[in-house]
Computed example of a mutant assay.
Amino acid sequence: MVNLNGTLVPNNEATVAINNRGLNYGDAVFETMRYSGGKIYFWEDHYFRLMASMRMLRMEIPMNFTMEFLEDEILRTVTTAEEKDATFRIKLLVWRKSGGKYTPETNDVAYSISCENLDTPFYVLTDANCEIELFKDHFITTSLLSTLKTNNRLINILGSIYAAENEFENCLLLNENKQVVEALNGNIFLISGNAIKTPPLADGCLNGILRKQLIAIIKLMPEFSIEEKSISPFELQKADEIFITNAIQGIVPVTKYRKKEYVNTTAKVLLPKLNLKARLS
């Protein structure tokens, strides 16, 4: 089932108007979340990121868009699924209501909530190959808009097509200063010895929920140091380990970049701590 503005409808009957502003102008923001064991992982962080994104895009936040209301709507949608106790990927999409061209007639919003099954009830590391390459056809701009989860994802789409055509599992995106910003579907972390780096938000990377959680976890581990610092492409082949993070998959170790192959030692140490924090969130 899909929740359209509070009304539950079957997936094959869920439709939006042809003049939908998310469809026509990318005038929409979204959150993708993991649901398992009766709870939404890191729900509070997702909620406040959504509210901040809506404010930045000058959307009118409805009075009833409280954390409790949206959580109840998500849970109500999940409980209509055939496998109520399954693990789900939840997508909460909010768009500005129809009307106008580039200048909207209203800042009021509509929303949808959809879900799809996931295979595992918690984050796991897979043994699958994850060979990456740089995507250099287009660049992310170093602006606050780049840190938001909006419907403007053409660079990610084109990068994903490039990866598929060249048999890479993922690509890394660069900003206009030729600094490594993020992967196609998540933030990146580089490990050299006990030093861990991830690009700063000022470089244009997504303000990722898992990024935030892992930074907090690593800061409590005296055996590691963590810094948010710009990453040059030349650093990739010098690193001992690289991994990608997102709210659905958790930690995805990179196995190869060009001639360099990587270990996943640090990822194995961090994963149980991340799963514990997710369950307690």
Rank of each mutant, 00 (worst) to 15 (best):
M1P: 15
L4P: 00
V9C: 01
E13S: 05
T15F: 04
A17I: 10
G22Q: 05
A28V: 06
V29I: 14
G37C: 09
F42I: 02
H46T: 07
S53T: 15
M54Y: 07
R55A: 14
R55P: 02
L57W: 09
R58A: 13
E60T: 15
M63A: 15
M63H: 14
N64F: 12
L70F: 15
L70H: 08
D72N: 15
D72G: 12
E73T: 06
T79K: 14
K84D: 02
R89V: 04
R96I: 11
K97S: 06
K97N: 11
G99F: 07
Y102P: 00
T103H: 09
D108L: 14
V109G: 07
E116G: 11
L125C: 00
T126G: 11
N129M: 09
C130I: 08
D137S: 14
D137V: 10
I140P: 05
S143N: 13
S146W: 08
S146G: 10
L148V: 07
R153D: 09
L154V: 03
L154I: 08
L154H: 01
N156M: 13
N156E: 14
L158D: 06
G159W: 11
S160R: 15
E165V: 08
E167A: 13
F168W: 13
E169C: 10
E169W: 09
N170P: 03
C171Q: 12
L173V: 10
L174A: 06
K178Y: 13
Q179A: 12
G186Y: 10
I188F: 08
I188A: 09
L190S: 01
I191W: 03
G193W: 09
A195R: 14
P199N: 06
D203L: 01
C205F: 02
G208H: 04
G208C: 03
K212H: 12
Q213P: 03
L214Q: 04
L214A: 11
L214P: 08
I218H: 03
L220C: 11
M221V: 04
P222D: 10
E223H: 07
I226K: 00
E228T: 10
S232W: 02
F234T: 13
Q237F: 00
Q237D: 10
A239F: 02
A239P: 06
I242W: 01
F243T: 02
A247Y: 07
I248K: 03
I251Y: 07
R258G: 00
R258P: 00
K259D: 12
E261R: 14
A267E: 02
V269K: 13
V269C: 05
L270C: 02
L274R: 01
L276H: 14
K277L: 14
K277G: 03
A278W: 04
R279G: 06
L280K: 12
